[in-house]
Nucleic acid binder design. Sequence first.
DNA 1: CCAAGAAAACTGATCATACCAGTTGACCAG
DNA 2: CTGGTCAACTGGTATGATCAGTTTTCTTGG
Lengths: 248, 248
Amino acid sequence: MTLKKVVRKSLSEAVFDQLSEEIVHGNMEPGQRLPAERELCEALGVNRGACREALQRLAQAGLISIQHGGSTKVLDYRASGGLDLLGRLLFRPDGGFSIQVARSILEMRAALGPDIAALCARRAKPELKGQLREVVTALSAAGEDLNQRQLLGMRFWDLLARGSGNIAYQLANNTLRKTYEKIRHVLTELMRDELLDHKSHQAIAEAIFRGDDLSAKHVTRGLLEKGTSRMLQFLARFEKAQNKESKT
Amino acid sequence: MTLKKVVRKSLSEAVFDQLSEEIVHGNMEPGQRLPAERELCEALGVNRGACREALQRLAQAGLISIQHGGSTKVLDYRASGGLDLLGRLLFRPDGGFSIQVARSILEMRAALGPDIAALCARRAKPELKGQLREVVTALSAAGEDLNQRQLLGMRFWDLLARGSGNIAYQLANNTLRKTYEKIRHVLTELMRDELLDHKSHQAIAEAIFRGDDLSAKHVTRGLLEKGTSRMLQFLARFEKAQNKESKT
DNA sequence: CCAAGAAAACTGATCATACCAGTTGACCAG
DNA sequence: CTGGTCAACTGGTATGATCAGTTTTCTTGG
């Protein structure tokens, strides 16, 4: 039996979810006016405070623009949204996930990963190296437990991002991790090869231990490119099938 | 005469700014309890609604964790913050900016840029190529007007990110652009060489026009590495001077 | 004395209502 | 056509009450 954490949603969060979903996947055009707060909260059956909290959050996410006295307008999320939108974009209303967004994430990962590893090799402090060693040890002990390997993989990348001394990488990694956590269970089998490639993970760690940035970058690139191309290949086939299906 | 847009801040935004500044640059430890809403709004002299709006936004930014019934706790922004934190991290309380954060941003830009250009060369549609051509034309007409070249440069990168067909790059670019807009005026002279390197910009555009991804990547890497290393060099000198100063 | 359970105190969540403040657009005088 | 006035609309602030969870404290039965 696997127990799942009960999610309790506040009203403002429910409103936020509904509106952002409507903006991202619905039929709201950029520039379109949102109903006035008083109308909106009446239509949604919630008090104005909850409604305002949601609207403020939407504005922070770059999905709407609020102007005192004027009306609230929908923005083009592609031009003003932040990286945290990835999670919402990835999942489609029908329950599946967007292949285009998944590809985007994989490409970004492949572009950043090697540089993160290289910087980590150059800058990591002894304490972090120790933690990294523990993760590698745990990885070699995890055997073929793919779920466990995914969790350790996240920790692996968290450490690399931290060790890179690059705060932008750390923050981007935070966002990507949050997105990954939501989708990793459907990717488990697809990532099998990458997850089981213990040799690469070990080689990256060892390159970092000895401060060999070039080697760290090179091995990381190999690991990610192999995993990425494999997943992209699969996604492309999947996409084709999906298109064919949607044409019927 | 240069007119600057008047900024009007709402109460909730002021509270948000103050608290996030306190968390990021102040002395609040992760795990520390925030005062209860009722105390907080009294201490700040604002109503509870404004206070709650700010707290909800802080939670969305990954700076605090709110729990119904329990108390609100400060999180470790390095482990849970999103990329939009960059802007706040970049600027220090004393008015200057953090060299470490600036370096991070430059490194990220250097890692992403070449891949963005390559993907754009592979995927850009005719319409986007047309817009890109206009920007390049405008750049060649801008002469040595560095301010104008900065603006066109932003547009240049916006187009590349959009043309890459990679939504993650677009969203990351949005965040980086927002940060850049806040600091670009102090970087103008420092970026002189990069801004005036019209040859590289033109070469990137032309590589994109003919779908030559490898060339686009290569030229972009050259442009960014040159600009980055120059700025990093300067920042390193600056950092040294700053350290020396802080020791006295 | 201790552990289980009830009660109290505390915290965030929701609600209703009133009023303040900025924007917009229609209208009118010059 | 310009500038000003005013009414209607929109978001912002304020207050006070109540609901709903969590944490702490205290009681109680063993």
